[in-house]
Design a protein around this nucleic acid. Structure first.
Lengths: 221, 221
DNA sequence: CCGATCTCTAAGCGCTTGCTCACCCACGTT
DNA sequence: AACGTGGGTGAGCAAGCGCTTAGAGATCGG
C-alpha cells in the first residue's frame, strides 16, 4: 500500500521483514532516514506555528536536535522540505476522498463518509493540514503546479459523488461545481480554526460537518 | 505628527465642506494623509500576494512610489501597517454582519442577507480579506488580542440570528455553536479561493452561499 | 587495519532584512 | 527675505537569513 513516489529508499539498512517504527499508519512513516523524518516533523510544526516564511532553517534543525547544516544533507532547500510535506499531505487527502467515493453504498452514504473522514483528518492532523492547505503559494512554480493538479483530482472525487447523487435523485443541487467548491472549502478551513483544546473531538466535528453537508445537497433526514 | 487612530482627523488641512477624494464609500477613504493611504493600499496588495512575512518594506514603499524610509514617517513598524489593515477590515466585516442581524424581517431573511453581503465582501475585496483573515498570527500579542475580540463579536452576531431562527421555529439546528462556526468559516474561506478571473461574480457566489447556508439551518424552500 | 562512505558539526560567506539618521526641499507665515 | 515645519530621500547599520565548506567521528566490507 506504500505509495512512495520519490521512494527507492527500500534498499537502506534494515531487512525487508522489519517495519519502520510506528507501523504503516504512522503519520510520516514513509519518510525513511530517521533523521530526515525528524527534520520533516520539526518543519511541519514550525511551519504550522509561524508560517513558512517566518520559519528559519535554524529553527527547524534546532527542533530536530541537529545543527543547521544537517538539514542540507537530507533536503536540497527549505522549499523542498515544504514540497515533500505538501506532496505527502495531498496524497493522503486525495486517498481519503477517493476511498469514500469508490465505496459501495448510496451517494448520501459516500458523501457523508467522505466529509466525515476528510474533516476528521483536517482536525486530527490540523498542524499538517494547515501547512498543506495554506502554504501553497510558498512553493516554486513547478512544485505548485504539481500540487494544484492533485487538488483538481480531489475536487473531481467530490464532484463525482455529488453528480451521482443528483443523477440518482438523492440530491437536489442547482449548482454542482459551486457546491463542490463550497464543500471542500468548508472541510479544508477546519484546519485553520480547529483547536485541540476546544470542546469538540475531531470525530464530533466530522459528524457535525457530514450532517451539514448532507443538508447542503438537499438530503431529507 | 498626526498619528491617526481611528477617525477624528477632520481637523486636518482641508475645509469641512470638502470630502476625501473617492467619497465615503471608498475602500480606504478613512486613511487620511494621502501618502499613508497609498502605502496602506500597497501593503494590502503585497501582503495578499506574497504573505506578510515574505513582503519587504522596500517592496511596499516601491509599490507606493516612495523610498523605503518614507514608510516610517507614517507607520512605526511593518506590523503596525498590518494591524491598521486588519483593524479596518474587521470593523467593516463586523459592520456588515451587524447590519444584517439588526434588520427587520424573518431570521431566514436576515441570515440570507448576512451571508450574501458577507460573502460578497470577501469575494469583491478578496485581496484585503485574505490579509485580514489569514495573517492574524503575524500580529503582535496585544494587537492580536484586540482583533480576536472583534471576531468574537462577529461570531456573536451570526449566532444571534441562528438562535432567533431556532426559537421562532424557522430553523432546525441541533448544534448552534458548531453551525455558527461552520457558516463563518465557509464565508471567510471564499477569500482564499475566489478569483476575479473565475466564472462567478461576487454577487453570484453570495447568492449561492446564502442558499447553501439556509439549507444548513434546515429552511425548506 | 585501511580506506571508503555516510552523517553530522563549527564556522562562516554573501546577501537581505527592518529600520535609522543626517539632510533636503516645498510651502505657509511673519 | 527669512524661517519653521512636516513630508520626503540616499546611504547605511546591525542583525539575521539561506546555504556552503572543511573536516570530525562512526561504521563497515575487504
Amino acid at each position: 500500500m506504500v505509495f512512495v513516489l520519490t521512494g527507492s529508499e527500500r534498499e537502506c539498512g534494515m531487512s525487508a521483514a522489519e517495519e519502520t517504527p510506528g507501523g504503516e499508519d504512522m503519520p510520516w512513516g514513509e519518510v525513511t532516514p530517521e533523521a530526515a523524518r525528524r527534520l520533516l516533523v520539526a518543519a511541519v510544526e514550525a511551519f504550522a506555528e509561524r508560517g513558512y516564511h517566518a520559519t528559519t532553517t535554524r529553527d527547524i534543525a534546532g527542533r530536530a536536535g541537529m545543527s543547521p547544516a544537517a538539514l542540507y544533507i537530507h533536503y536540497k532547500t527549505k522549499e523542498e522540505l515544504l514540497h515533500r510535506i505538501s506532496r505527502i499531505g495531498h496524497d493522503k487527502a486525495l486517498e481519503i476522498l477517493r476511498a469514500a467515493a469508490d465505496r459501495d453504498g448510496t451517494a448520501a452514504e459516500r458523501l457523508a463518509d467522505a466529509v466525515h473522514s476528510f474533516v476528521r483528518w483536517h482536525a486530527e492532523r490540523h498542524t499538517t493540514a494547515r501547512v498543506v492547505q495554506y502554504e501553497l503559494d510558498a512553493l516554486g512554480p513547478e512544485h505548485r503546479a504539481e500540487i494544484v493538479e492533485l487538488r483538481k483530482q480531489s475536487d473531481g472525487a467530490v464532484r463525482r459523488i455529488i453528480d451521482e447523487g443528483v443523477a440518482a435523485g438523492e440530491f437536489v443541487v442547482p449548482d454542482v461545481p459551486g457546491t463542490t467548491v463550497a464543500v471542500l472549502s468548508l472541510c479544508i478551513d477546519v484546519s485553520r480554526w480547529f483547536n485541540t483544546q476546544g470542546r469538540r473531538s475531531p470525530d464530533e466535528v466530522g459528524a457535525l460537518y457530514a450532517d451539514l453537508v448532507l443538508r447542503m445537497v438537499g438530503v431529507q433526514k
